[in-house]
């Protein structure tokens, strides 16, 4: 450890605390809200003193939302499952398609390969609304509207470019000669991809998959337009809490807590992979 003078250390501590407060406060507040009733949330002036209740969570889990206008059915758990299913399936398919493609773009430089790769990336730049209108019409004609398959297909617009670009970078960082050394030792092109390229790019692939999962999870607009209630993920499902008789802040907060928990956990876990991925080729074993 290098020695720093105490004033510098104190200042640094304060700065870090401020930054953490700034970023963590909304999350902290949401967690507090999720244990309160709408009345305590909305009281004036706001206070941090309240008797915690699990009512909100219960409502979400049982699917029965009690409002002043009566009991409302909500499909939050179904939405949560949809989010899981859509994101996982999209990332899985994105990896199956994207990783070999990334390898091809990294290793085979052919005429126009750079342009094709960039075109694929540019899907990320386009506002989703640009493709939504024509997609809606196509999907209705093809019978893909409101199916998991159709949604997973459009989700590729989110996950594929991400996986392609991140993983391509990792493949490019593997010295080509390491692969040549393996090939010349009597291994086929495919075996080299599986035994050398994939393991060496492993941390990068994991990082890309986790990022893609988070992006897919957070997607809102594709599912909003292309799916009806029973196929919708939590991001869209949360709209159900905006009811005719008012906005259910407590349940929204609980819903948010439940829906960010998986991505939050993933991000914490991914941290390790991202760091490992960035130091590709460093000491192993």
């Amino acid at each position: 450890m290098e020695s720093v003078n105490p004033i510098e250390r104190a200042l640094r501590g304060i700065a870090i605390t401020l930054v953490i407060l700034f970023f963590m406060f909304p999350i902290f507040w949401i967690i507090l809200m999720s244990f309160q009733t709408n009345e305590t949330i909305l009281r004036m002036p706001p206070s941090m003193v309240f008797t915690p209740t699990l009512e909100n969570y219960m409502a979400l889990i049982t699917g029965k939302l009690e409002t002043s206008a009566g009991i409302l059915e909500i499909a939050f758990m179904k939405n949560l499952f949809n989010s899981f299913f859509l994101s996982t399936a999209s990332v899985a398919i994105g990896l199956v398609l994207g990783v070999p493609a990334a390898y091809a773009f990294a290793r085979l430089k052919f005429k126009g390969s750079e342009d094709i790769a960039f075109t694929l990336l540019s899907f990320r730049f386009a506002p989703p609304l640009l493709v939504l209108l024509p997609l809606t019409i196509y999907f209705q004609q093809l019978g893909l509207a409101n199916t998991y398959g159709g949604l997973i297909w459009v989700y590729q617009l989110i996950v594929l470019p991400l996986i392609l670009w991140i993983v391509r970078g990792y493949f490019e960082d593997i010295p080509a000669d390491v692969e040549y050394a393996y090939r010349i030792a009597g291994h086929s092109w495919g075996a080299t991809f599986r035994k050398i390229a994939l393991p060496l790019a492993g941390p990068g692939i994991a990082a890309a998959a986790l990022l893609a999962f988070i992006f897919a999870w957070n997607n809102f607009v594709f599912a909003l337009v292309l799916a009806s209630a029973d196929k919708q993920p939590v991001t869209v499902g949360a709209l159900a809490f905006v009811t005719a008789s008012g906005i259910q802040y407590g349940q929204i907060a609980a819903g948010i807590v439940l829906s960010i928990a998986p991505t939050f956990a993933l991000a914490l876990y991914a941290q390790r992979y991202l760091v490992e991925g960035l130091s590709l080729g460093a000491v192993k074993g």
Binding site: V178, Y180, A181, L200
Partner: peptide, 10 residues
């Protein structure tokens, strides 16, 4: 034998 050695790091 490669100029840059190219051993498999793993």
């Amino acid at each position: 034998a490669f100029e840059g050695y190219s051993l498999y790091p793993t």
